[in-house]
Design a protein around this nucleic acid. Sequence first.
DNA 1: GCCAACGTTGGC
DNA 2: GCCAACGTTGGC
Length: 148
Amino acid sequence: MAIWLMKSEPDEFSINDLKTKQRANWDGVRNFQARNYMRDMAQGDLVLFYHSSCKVPGIVGTATVSKTAHPDPSCLDPNSPYFDPKSTQESPRWVQVELTFESKFANPITLAMMKAMPELEGFPLVKKGNRLSVMPVADGYWAALQAL
DNA sequence: GCCAACGTTGGC
DNA sequence: GCCAACGTTGGC
């Protein structure tokens, strides 16, 4: 089983929204590297849910991949903020995965905490200028996070 | 194919 | 709200 980290702005879609819905399609990813990682996800993979662009950025809970990558319909919808004019019915370009809620942490693992951990040096999330919204979590980093 | 201009992300 | 970092676009 692989471990992933996915970012979301809580104003757009938060861990509470996922908890309420239980299942949700993770759409709107418009970055090729992030998309390629989503294609690599397998059924049952664990996802660390990260809140970005908010008061206290950090990992706030977990989810599992309940449906692997399939076309993201929002890229074909002219009324969607995620509309992509370069996508076509034959070649939609973008994918979504379906996540199922697993847990919400009583105490989030904040970005500040992670930046202070020497074990996480090299983890893309804590690198300066990181903007990747979907990333794999290597075993060593996962072990360090679990220790919390 | 290079690279400047521009837009977006995201922490602070 | 600011700004650094990075991805994308488009002219050449």
